[in-house]
Design a protein around this nucleic acid. Sequence first.
RNA 1: GGCGUCUUGGCCGAGUGGCUAGGCAGAGGUCUGCAAAACCUUGUACAGCGGUUCGAAUCCGCUAGACGCCUCCA
Length: 496
Amino acid sequence: MQLYKNQELKIYNSLTSKKEVFNPINEGHVGMYVCGPTVYSNVHLGNVRTFMSFDMIFRYLKHLGYKVRYVRNITDAGHLTDDADSGEDKIAKKARLEQIEPMEVVQMYTIDFHNILNKFNFLPPSIEPTATGHIIEQIEIIKEILDKGFAYEVNGSVYFDVHKFNESHEYGKLSGRNLEDLVHNSRALDGQSDKKNPQDFALWKKAEPQHIMRWPSPWSDGFPGWHLECTAMSTKYLGEQFDIHGGGMDLKFPHHECEIAQAEACNNQSPVNVWMHANMLKMNGQKMAKSTGNSINPGELLSGDNDILSKAYSPSAIRFFMMQSSYRSILDLTDDGLLAAEKAYRKLMEAINSLPNLKVSNNSTTDFDVASWKQQCYDAMNDDFNTPILIAELFSAIKFINQIKDGKATISQEDFNTLTNTLHVFVFDVLGLLNITENNDSGSDKLSDTVQLLINMRAEARANKDFALSDKIRDELAAIGIQLKDGKDGTTFSTN
RNA sequence: GGCGUCUUGGCCGAGUGGCUAGGCAGAGGUCUGCAAAACCUUGUACAGCGGUUCGAAUCCGCUAGACGCCUCCA
């Protein structure tokens, strides 16, 4: 099943600002690193969108037959709340506020993170390393950078010398900046810094006495700089050069820029072939971010417990909503948008669930060519993971299915198999949607039987033209959230 | 201030030199005892102005507006 040999995948590379044909370093294998969350509060939906984009990418790469090693880290070491030398680390701050151990903060929100991702049907990454588990590797990298002369020590802290680095390398190539501009436009710091230049960034910070999260190092008891962990862990698990590095758009500068600098300082080669950046999620037209308060927890979306929402949404409806836009576009989360997506998602599922009952004929009508439709689905995904186009293709298949149901088209057994298989692959394996199954909760058999009883009674009443009774059954069931659907083959129901 | 992105029909959201995106809503229809649901059919769109071109929503320029990064953030 090495589909990648027949499919030409193109990926938009942030480093070159172009779509490029994807060729992994080792044929058949892909190394992918994605910057994970800092676990100091509940994940907000923007994080989920980014990770969902990479989940979809992971899924498609796997479907193409690649052996993918997908590394997504957990940032659990404290990083500073601002870039000056003073400032508390985020995890310690949260720990102080809630009067718990920093590692309790980490544990609590790591669990929350995993719970949420499970609800949204994420595949687990191959490796999920933590920053605190790789302090030694980070110290080794600092030593290496110091040896190469691209860092300096001041008062127990070690800083990366961006200006020195820029003499022989190109700092800013990912984000399209040059150092001169950065110098020109950097805000005046108060001069309290140990840094030689404001553009320099910390590799190691000496801990203040009250700082709880600290580790010994050759320079001081302290903690690593926040760009370093990704370099340490990506190098350890994927090598000095690997295929894909992803993250949110907001990490492009300075985080990813600094990662490149660190890795190049160490190994004198560019660490990553393809840089991918997932775009931001807005909410009602405003930037969504933890720091501004304009953010929504995934949990609130699933429970409907938020002012902007008219109702609760299922994880798959939300996933569908996100997959309807391209991962590189800014997406605006609104109640109307979710409502529309939920309906579309249901339509998709109803058609898929009707497939087993579809009548198969000796041959297919010619106006819908299943084989070329299938390739169009691949073409959509091959074009930089264009899920909106893929979904449009899925709906053209849905239309075909409905035409068969109406007797306006026919399908051969072979085409039927291809259609069914392809729909399952893209809807469930690639997009990662979950099926709506009628009455899927365990223990709902009794509910199902009860409703069936009422359906039968209503059918009798209708046969006797006792419409007062039949309408009463229908309306009162609707009032408690059970909707009856009269179809040609009898009545079914759905719960809200 | 610097760098960058975006502006598509009522809403969301693809596309990017000539050929229907798609979804939701709306309208009409089929089905139904009536509804609902489901299905079918249907659309006025490419911010404004100017330019390049046989032809531009798509390329170039200007204007207006929105946004992102530059400071912790996915």
